[in-house]
Each structure stands twice: as C-alpha cells, then as structure tokens.
C-alpha cells in the first residue's frame, strides 16, 4: 500500500518537471532579452498581472459576463437538443422527418454561422447566446438520441407489463437508462459552449474573457493575453471536473469498465 502511494507521488512529481523547466527557461530568456518583451513575457510578470486584474475586480467582472452568456446559451441549446433528441428517439417517423434537415445543418462548421448570425441578430447579446446555443444543441441532440434509442427493449416490455403511463415511462425508465449518455452530451455541450463564447467574444464584444484577450493583444501586452488564456483554460477544466463529480455521484451504478 505504502509503495503504491509512493509511486503515485513520484508520478505527480515527474509531471511537474516540464512545467517547472519551462518557467525557469522563460525567465532566463527574458532576463537575457533575446526576444522583444511583446512576444515572450516572463512568467512572474503574468502572475503579477493576474493579481492586478483580480484586485481591480476587472477579471471577475469579465468572467461573470462570459459565464452568464455561456449559461444562457448552453441552457437554451441543451434544452432544445434534449427535446429534439427525445422526440426523435421515441418516434421513428419524426426522426425520418427531422433528421435529414438537422444533419445538413450540422455539416456547417460552427464558426461559419458567425457572419450569418451577426447579420440577423446584430453584434449584441442575442447573437452570442444564439451562437452558443447552436454549438450546445448538436452534441446534446446526438447523445440524447443515442441514449434513449439505446434503452434495451426488455426494459420497455417490463414497463408495458406494469402499465406505466408515458410520463412515468420517461421518468422511471427512459431517463435513468439514458443518463450516462445524457451526461456525455451535457459535458460535450458545455465544453463546446465555453469554446464558442471565447470565439464570439473575439469577434464582437466589449467585455468578457475573450474580449480581455483581444484587448491585451491590441495593447501589445502579452501578459494580459496569457492571463486570459490561462483563466479560460482553468475555468473550462473546472466545469469539466464539476460535471464529472456530479456524474459519479448521480450514476453510481454505471461505472466504466476500466474503473472496476
């Protein structure tokens, strides 16, 4: 047991070698002033900028705005995706009617919608929310569909034997059985939303973390750009971890084979 713990600590320590070397290397390069400071910035300066932006409250304000956009877009897109996915999985005819149109729409690379949506909705909040909802819609749709479509026929037969109403069938049989797949959909949709909010804020915004990065670029302040990138990455990762934890606690009966 002890040795196992020791090797784990060792593994973690090995993982820190490259980042630490990178930081030291960057510091040395900056001390020697090989590159102009707009291109390579010393890690300690990035940290100082980070604390500056936090203490002025600027960073948190940008984050709050981005978060709000992501959540509205995600909720809108994921709800629609869930509804469409459920309907398509329950009725083969509706699948045949809706699926071709949706799969044609999903062929368009997401960023390709930006010009169209900007013409329709302007450059305000509506544009961003609709754009994010677009991105959240498709992963949720596909995973809901697959989850509910993949419910074993025997479950449905048992439900029929118990004469479940359709509401009870959805609530007691279909949703629990489809939950692992739904979670995959939620994770993908939220990840996509987070990526798209940054994208949307790069092209049209006056605030938000994406804008913070663009702003840093316009001022030629690499440290702000790096703070933005690091913050965006960590928040995305935190969201992913939270969802993972939620998934484990909700779906305790469904564990991946690898963890058994």
């Amino acid at each position: 047991m002890n040795t196992k713990g020791e090797t784990q600590v060792k593994t973690i320590l090995i993982g820190f070698i490259v980042p630490v070397l990178l930081v030291i290397g960057l510091e040395i390069i900056c001390k020697l002033e090989i590159f102009p400071s707009q291109i390579v910035v010393a890690p300690h300066k990035v940290l100082i900028t980070f604390f500056d932006l936090i203490s002025t409250g600027e960073l948190l304000e940008h984050l709050r705005i981005s978060m709000y956009r992501v959540l509205t877009g995600f909720v809108l897109g994921a709800t629609l995706g869930f509804i469409f996915g459920t309907v398509m999985a329950l009725s083969p005819r509706s699948e045949r009617i809706i699926a071709p149109l949706l799969s044609a729409l999903s062929q368009v690379p997401l960023f390709g919608w930006i010009p169209l949506l900007m013409l329709w909705f302007g450059i305000g909040e509506t544009f961003k929310v609709v754009f994010i909802a677009f991105g959240a819609f498709f992963p949720m749709l596909i995973n809901t569909f697959e989850g509910i479509h993949g419910v074993p026929r025997s479950y449905l037969e048992v439900a029929r034997a118990f004469e479940f109403s359709s509401a009870k069938l959805l609530h007691k049989v279909l949703l629990p059985a489809a939950l692992p797949s739904l979670f995959t959909g939620i994770k993908l949709a939220l990840g996509m939303s987070w990526m798209l909010v940054v994208g949307a804020e790069l092209v049209a915004a006056g605030e938000g973390v994406g804008y913070l990065i663009v702003w840093g670029r316009q001022l030629f302040q690499m440290d702000i750009v790096f703070v933005g990138i690091a913050v965006v990455g960590s928040i995305g990762y935190l969201m992913f971890l939270t969802l993972n934890a939620l998934e484990v606690s909700l779906i305790s009966w469904h564990r991946p084979l690898s963890k058994k």
Binding site: G15, F16, P19, M195, I213, M222, A230, F240
Partner: peptide, 27 residues
C-alpha cells in the same frame, strides 16, 4: 516515462478553448 513526463502538461494545454490561441498567434 515520457507518458508521465508529458501527459500532465499536454492535458493542461488541451484545456484552453481553441479560439483563445488566435490573439496570441496574431501577436
């Protein structure tokens, strides 16, 4: 060994949403 050495930093970098790299590359 390389797996242990590189995977953590690779995963950390992977968390950054792809559009966020654009301003850096412009700079």
């Amino acid at each position: 060994f390389l797996e242990k050495l590189i995977t953590p930093i690779f995963n950390a970098i992977r968390q950054v949403p792809l559009p966020a790299w654009a301003p850096l590359l412009v700079l």
